[in-house]
Nucleic acid binder design. Structure first.
Lengths: 255, 255
DNA sequence: CGGCCTGTTGATGCTTATCAATTCCTGTGG
DNA sequence: CCACAGGAATTGATAAGCATCAACAGGCCG
């Protein structure tokens, strides 16, 4: 199913990011997500030290950073773009566990087996660190451990909020929540946004079928809440209604 | 709804645990969950130091350790018993996000607002630490930070596995999974176990209704997979079938 | 131009929620 | 110790919601 991605992916293309891959201080200074990312917690000295082990990497759409079940050899910060966290089910189908956009931290610093694959949904820029180097760095910089712990706990909150949605929300609420999620925190009436997922992937993420997702989208279109200029884009016409349909509570903070 | 718990709970009854509440080294030596808990990672010296800020506390059934939305003033290890993590929904009902048994770590070391309440389902023994003291201890002991980070990432995996279940499992699979969870990792044929949750709470946790939970239980009974000696107990008659119904994959590691 | 993949739309049936009635516990007070 | 009240659980009838199966439409690329 994802064979074509497998061919393109792997560690071999680490060289595909710009020459001088080491994370330059000035690059970090310009980093738009530094405030939200773990680096933001470090002193200038520690940040410089961290640059020595970190690398920038571009993950093309469809490429896989970490395979499910593999020992996670690296940890990373998402700078730009979006990745999905997914896992196979016992029935063979794929289940998407969540999405991660700018500022999110991915991977397991303890180097244990990853419970899910990490795949780029669009071209994605990452700050990548080898697990071992990152871990020894953490031992000398407790503040990074604290920052990461906070990050992990945030991730936990996010996962629990999805849990809440999956346990209780109906199809309309799920699809509306997805759209708000795709639009991001500064969604506006009249704005057009990109679907980072296919209908099938949206269905996997929301715990629905393709058909139900499609039907709910046309229903929202019929209601005048959104329009669908192309199959890869949607426009929000009535943000308030959309938020109301999503149930307001579940979607907040679901980034 | 949980008024009676509110009356009994609160920080005032911290004095209710045994005299000499400070965590004694010999008590910790005898601690059955030390291997799994964060303390297990510490050197003897660090452990002794940690004893100074930690306290044992018994949480009676129904008592609340942390209220949803409150700044979490403490973090804790579960030693014995079981607590639930729950949150209110926009519709006013309660949603249980998960359970935590022996060895699990709860609370937010960063002291932020808790996204969920923590309530004892049965009488529960905890190792409790004030957030501030715990945090400063962490700054001097990076290994604790690393251990906690691993714990948090484990919690994340557990939450994601639950997410998987909520997204895909049908009623039978959900109820079977719950039973396996209640029975614990060393479940055996013929053994009788206690329901730590009422039918209503089980429904909340599994994203079902009371009626559906009840129907699935009688269905499992009719199939000869379990028996129900009283409404608070169940006996596993055919563990293999139960695991097969649960779908095997989702339930593994759902502690 | 034709095949192929993705998405949409339609018809139908199963699963589970909902509403409603009854039974079974459990704890309380006589 | 028994009777009774109240809540929790079970069981039944019905309906809504979503999955499933199936046909069709629209892009995209060879």
């Amino acid at each position: 199913m994802y064979l074509e991605q497998k061919i393109n992916a792997g560690m071999g293309d680490v060289a595909s990011f710009p020459a001088g891959g080491n994370c330059e201080p000035d690059v970090c200074a310009a980093c738009t997500v530094r405030k939200e990312a773990v680096c933001g917690r470090l002193t200038v000295g520690a940040l410089n030290e961290l640059h020595q082990i970190g690398r920038h990497r571009v993950l093309r759409k469809g490429q896989t950073l970490i395979w499910e079940g593999d020992d996670s050899p690296l940890v990373a910060n998402v700078m730009e773009g979006m990745v999905k966290l997914s896992t196979g089910t016992s029935t063979g189908s794929e289940q998407i566990l969540g999405l991660a956009g700018p500022g999110r931290f991915i991977g397991r610093p303890n180097g244990g087996a990853s419970g899910h694959s990490i795949v780029a949904l669009v071209d994605t820029k990452l700050c990548v660190f080898p697990t071992t180097a990152f871990r020894s760095f953490m031992e000398n910089h407790p503040e990074l451990g604290l920052a990461l712990l906070d990050k992990a706990l945030d991730e936990l909150d996010i996962a629990r909020r999805w849990q809440l949605m999956l346990a209780r929300a109906n199809a309309s609420e799920r699809v509306a929540t997805l759209l708000l999620h795709f639009a991001g925190s500064n969604a506006r009436d009249g704005e057009t946004y990109h679907f980072p997922l296919s209908r099938g992937q949206m269905a996997e993420l929301a715990g629905l079928t393709i058909e139900t997702v499609s039907r709910q989208l046309t229903r929202l279109k019929t209601m005048g809440v959104i329009s669908l200029p192309s199959r890869d884009n949607f426009q929000i016409l009535d943000l308030d209604s959309l938020a109301a349909i999503a149930g307001e509570a579940p979607q907040s903070g679901l980034h």
